[in-house]
Design a protein around this nucleic acid. Structure first.
Length: 220
DNA sequence: TGCCAGGCCCTCTTTAGGGCCTT
């Protein structure tokens, strides 16, 4: 085994052993405009298996509008008896530790995670991956790249409600594993290291196939 | 009552504009 290949396997194991898939429900789209988290859901993936889960509603200290109530199914009555964002996010920060992180449209969840942790005087330690960016490259024929559409497109069993944090995190994890498996099968790769994912999501769609073919030729 | 953001990514592009995706 070459040193290069050994390093890639080690890197892949590090990623697999530490990734946390998360999803926020929020009062709106922008923490910079004062929006707050109202629910966090997450699953811990270890070697492709969900080994732990985290789910909690949190009281943002204000009423949410009817659009958010209808969109998420989370009501003001539910939030009125929920613990504070401070309490929930403190527990969640301990849950994720220094793990690498994954979300569908990660830029959105990363902004809220950073904003909520900043209120606690804490910060994100792990590195984010984005299932949306990867899906846009490897499922170019999908009708669109919304989470629900991709779950349906790949015939992944979905027994629950989209737009609730834990369910969306579970579905994102399933989609992620499906994408890694499809990449492995399509290009004959034993594992998909984090460095390859990072390169993939920065590669123009038209050049993705060539990159993977060249990578597979190099590693195999 | 209606609207609000930010990053990615494509194209009729790069001195820009607009759709997608997240709540």
């Amino acid at each position: 085994m070459t040193i290069f290949k050994a390093l890639l396997i080690k890197e892949a194991l590090v990623l697999a052993n530490s990734i946390v898939v998360l999803d926020f429900e929020t009062t709106g789209l922008s923490p910079d405009q004062g929006d707050r988290a109202i629910e966090i859901g997450a699953v811990k993936l270890e070697n492709g298996i969900v080994t732990d889960r985290f789910q909690a509603l949190m009281n943002p200290g204000r009423r949410i509008n009817s659009f958010i109530e209808n969109y998420t199914g989370i009501s003001n009555r539910m939030l009125a008896v929920a613990p504070t964002c401070t309490k929930v996010m403190t527990e969640f920060a301990d849950f994720i530790g220094a793990s690498n992180l994954l979300a569908h449209n990660a830029a959105f969840d990363a902004r809220f995670l950073e904003a909520e942790l900043a209120r606690l005087g804490r910060q994100v330690c792990g590195e984010f991956s984005c299932s949306l960016l990867l899906a846009r490259r490897i499922y170019q024929d999908a009708p669109n790249h919304q989470l629900g559409t991709l779950i349906n497109y790949k015939n992944i069993a979905a027994d629950g409600s989209f737009h609730r944090a834990l369910f969306d995190a579970e579905m994102t994890a399933e989609l992620w594993l499906m994408m890694l498996n499809d990449l492995s099968e399509r290009y004959g790769l034993d594992n998909i290291p984090f460095s390859l994912i990072k390169r993939l999501v920065k590669t123009p769609k038209a050049k993705v196939d060539k990159l993977l073919i060249n990578y597979a030729a190099k590693i195999n």
